[in-house]
Design a protein around this nucleic acid. Structure first.
Lengths: 157, 157
DNA sequence: CCGGCTTGGTTCAAATTGGAATCAAGCCTC
DNA sequence: GAGGCTTGATTCCAATTTGAACCAAGCCGG
């Protein structure tokens, strides 16, 4: 095997990559912080509530939820258990598939989400949205949207 | 307190935010995977090696390193200990400050990094860089660069 | 209807993380 | 030069994350 020289990143590419790494870490840290302080929720937990609140019947199958959150199934099991203990989410069994488990947002969960949302949205604005011009925001959405689509599908050529 | 209605995200903003969340999770997951499989390193560990390899004397103070990686000091202590056990990094004491600890990349660490780098760069290209057009890449770099700068500095108005 | 493969979720153990507490050492100010 | 605040790093502990193993339960082809 010829051990080809890899295509290293040029300066522009490196800048984008570094920016991506820093920005994601910083934003993630900041939001985690804000949610913990203001709503006693982890970001993962908050996202569970958001997904459920937007779903029909305020409920989703575990697997579907795991895919949307881009997390492992076991990780989701853990977090849903936590949320269940806190009374924000309930587990129901799935009518169409005995094996299935449906997570459903409780009224209390809805209320907690409603209370947490304004502060969280403000933090999202402060750390990302309002930092950029509308054009920058659109470019960002286009680029990252493409990245997501590419990685979700099985990377077709 | 009047409890003002918060400024919710409009569709464009929401799209950007969703894209950001998905893309970061997916990319992070993919790279973590690739490094674990191909080089038996976590992404954090890889980044430690990268930072050290690029620093003068292949060495950096713990705090400086923690800031660059955007991680907690205790987390860094842990990872450096792991890397030290593996012989990839060594701890030295700092000449100018008795309290200081300097992490230094060993020859073995340099070698491991050299072996891991091509595969990692390829994965970075595949998941982010090569997915975008050069223009998109520049826009991305500009936007995320701004975000990073804003969050690193104490968010001046 | 019966093995055999895939799916849906949970359980388990191991690794990682992050914050608070700790401890030593630098840096002042008075 | 003594007391008091800040800094640098580690230790400790509780929470989280992940993959592997596992246990049903569906879904066939023969």
């Amino acid at each position: 095997m010829p051990m080809e020289e890899p295509r290293w990143l040029d300066d522009r590419e490196r800048a984008a990559w570094i920016g991506f790494l820093s920005a994601t870490n910083l934003v993630s840290r900041k939001l985690e912080q804000q949610l913990k302080d203001d709503a006693a929720l982890s970001h993962t937990q908050y996202e569970v509530l958001v997904q459920l609140s937007a779903a029909p019947d305020r409920s989703l199958r575990m697997t579907e939820l795991a895919e949307r959150l881009v997390t492992s199934k076991s990780g989701l099991t853990y977090q849903v258990t936590q949320l269940e203990r806190a009374g924000l989410v309930a587990r129901r069994s799935c009518p169409s598939d005995v094996r299935g488990v449906i997570a459903e947002l409780t009224d209390r969960g809805m209320e907690v989400l409603r209370e947490a949302a304004p502060g969280h949205v403000a933090a999202v604005r402060e750390s990302l949205i309002d930092v950029l011009t509308p054009e920058q925001l659109d470019h960002l959405a286009a680029g990252l949207g493409e990245v997501s689509r590419r990685l979700r599908g099985c990377t077709p050529p």
